[in-house]
Design a protein around this nucleic acid. Structure first.
Lengths: 192, 192
DNA sequence: ACAAAACGTTTACAAAAGACAAGAACGCTT
DNA sequence: AAGCGTTCTTGTCTTTTGTAAACGTTTTGT
């Protein structure tokens, strides 16, 4: 179960066994049912999560509507980074869409690990580098492409997400209404 | 001139004087005129830049049109991160909008610094953390807000940018056409 | 198994944005 | 100062998206 996590870390840095033991000692775990709220509105968060199993989404509430901004699947981190790093209250909500198994890392423990394991800084740096590239590509997609193009790209790049997430959440994630997404799907299915 | 850079680094980590000397030795500098192309399409980039003075933009070409995706001002880094980190050719173009003074850091030199200066990993990690938060907020804005709301936020949060960047570049940066931005401005000026 | 809730599609109408073209304002060069 | 090109605005028309409501279907809970 934790092999899965070290398979992930091995792609970035080579932790020694003592390093891994320290890391293991710092990691907690959580099993959550679908629809559980992991991070709540207006509360501070001092944890980040590594997804072993399941699917989660991050959303905002705007004018009474839930707007999904991120969908996360196994073997990646999820957190309310803003709150986690700055100590402010979270404006975003994270909830499980499926039953989830997570590893938990507390901020205080992470700070300790930075001191105890020299490679830790490098590991997180590399994770951040790749995350940055990925978010930048997503942002670029929002500036460059219209909703239909975004949907088609999602379709080809993350087909798994489409089957795990209700369509109205996908719609807000694409920056449009469920009505509009329904129309786009109709256009795409019938046209080509 | 380089004090300006260390004023920036001091906000993240406390480099010792020997650290700073090593850093200085690795940093080059560039003076560029307005309209100079710093990063070109379809070429690899092995440098990143710290902006001392001036203003630059990053853009894509889509169907013959230039679409601005980022505008950078002094005391921040700019680079084609994707190309820089993965070694692929850059799909994006970076150009100067004003005469610019930049510090240059080569990828090979950065890798050396990671070995020579233990704090370097931590420094870049912290820079990446803040950059990530900022990009995430920008992305959230694109999902959550419509073009008019995005423009108003830009107006209140980055009024300086509005005066440095031609309106048609701002328009594509907001994900709309220059025509549409012109109308939004008209609506805002006359309405409230 | 049944009732309630959630989900997806569709409709009609309103609002917003895109495309295209013409004209006005501005800045730069000579 | 005149001329040139760029930039911004405006008008008209078309396309796309949003809003609201209705309807059938599926999922969920008990």
């Amino acid at each position: 179960m934790t092999e899965q996590f070290f398979t992930y870390t091995d792609r970035y840095v080579k932790f020694t066994q003592p390093d891994k033991d320290l890391l293991l000692a710092a990691l907690g775990s959580k099993h959550l049912e679908a629809k559980t709220e992991l991070v709540s509105y207006d509360k501070p968060v001092d944890e980040l999560y590594f997804i072993l199993k399941g699917c989660l989404r991050k959303y905002f509430v705007k004018e009474g509507q839930q707007i999904t901004v991120y969908i996360a699947t196994p073997n990646s981190f999820i957190a309310a980074f803003d709150s986690f790093m700055t100590g402010t209250n979270s404006q975003e909500i994270i909830e499980c869409l499926e039953p989830c198994e997570l590893l938990v890392l507390k901020k205080a423990d992470l700070e300790h690990l930075y001191c105890q394991i020299p490679l830790m800084n490098e590991f997180i740096r590399k994770v951040l580098e790749l995350t940055l590239i990925q978010i930048q590509q997503t942002l670029t997609m929002y500036i460059l492409d219209n909703p239909e193009e975004r949907y088609v790209k999602l379709l080809s790049q993350n087909p798994d997400i489409l089957q795990r997430v209700p369509q109205h959440m996908l719609a807000t994630y694409l920056g449009i209404t469920p009505t509009s997404l329904s129309r786009i799907r109709k256009r795409i299915i019938t046209k080509p």
